[in-house]
Amino acid sequence: MRSVLFASILGLVGAALLHIVIVLVLPQFTGRDAYTRVLGLLEMDSFFSLTSTPGPTGLSNVDPYLRTAVCSFSIADGPARFLASGSVPFWSLAVFDSSSNEVFSMNDHTAVNGRLDLVVATPIQLVELRKAPPEALAQSIMVEMKEEDGYAVLRAMAPLDSFEDQVRNFLAESSCEPFRR
């Protein structure tokens, strides 16, 4: 009887350990985290507008009044630059790394002249950009990202149906490209 109790207690200790291991290791193995889903759209280096019904990767415009576009990028070979402009009531951008941690986020009020012009670079690339700032990036916001891969989410608001076209154009004309001097 005693040995059964001992085995049960040992089992519970094992269960606690396994619980901790599963919770800590799970983020690397789910295969359906946001970064994997964005990569699954197979659209590197451009914003992909989501639909209101979940697409093949399960991403969709969840909020009824927000239209979303996503872009996966890599800054291993050079900085990435995000551009968008247009008149929508509200837009916001968030940059995440490959483990879906927020790197940077902004909205139209925190942007220069309400235009999106953002450069994401590694610390070393950023030092070089600062040493000899290119003319084209005079107005850009520079953001440092330690990881090389990530994704960006651009949201624009259509509070009424009549904004639909404006918002669609805004997202379609936005760009997410590697920056080359």
């Binding site: 946001a34 889903r37 991403l59």
Partner: peptide, 11 residues
Amino acid sequence: ARAGELLYGGA
């Protein structure tokens, strides 16, 4: 990671 949602950034 399991839900795979696009979360809102702070701003």
